[in-house]
Structures are given as C-alpha cells and as structure tokens.
Amino acid sequence: MAAKTPVANQIRRLRFESGEMSQKALAEAVGVTRQTIVAIENAKYAPSLELAFLIARRFDKPLEEVFWYQDTDAPKGS
C-alpha cells in the first residue's frame, strides 16, 4: 500500500455538497483521470499547485479550504 501524503483534503465532502458530483465529472472538469482524483481523495497523491487551484476553483472555494497540511493546520471551512 502506498504511503499517505500529509496533504489532506475535503474533496469528497465538497463533491457531495455540489449536487453529488461524480469523481469522473470532477476529473473531466480539471483535466485529469478519475484515478488521479481517487488518489488525491485518499491522500495517496499530493496534486500540483496548479491542479489544486483548479480543483478549489471548481468548488468555488479558496485553496486552503480544500487542501491543508495534515500536521500543522486544520481546514478553515471544517
């Protein structure tokens, strides 16, 4: 099993709050594969800054409300 990245996120919750958006729909919206979204949601992969911004923009949220560093800060939105 791959090690977890310290970059946590709340994409899963945001997807459900956005009309139960599917992983595939989010992946298509930001131009990556569904597997990449799965890996990000499970904290198996830390996205690039550009992809992180794209995902945050898709949910109309600031970056720090979608992603945060697990060991230091909690998300402002939670």
Binding site: A27, E28, G31, V32, T33, Q35, T36, Y45, P47
Partner: peptide, 11 residues
C-alpha cells in the same frame, strides 16, 4: 476523448 495522461501518470 479520454485524457491521455495527466500529472500523476507523468510522475
């Protein structure tokens, strides 16, 4: 029209 490869694929 699938995404051919993304940043994770390249990594």
């Amino acid at each position: 029209q699938p995404v051919l490869s993304d940043e994770r694929d390249r990594l």
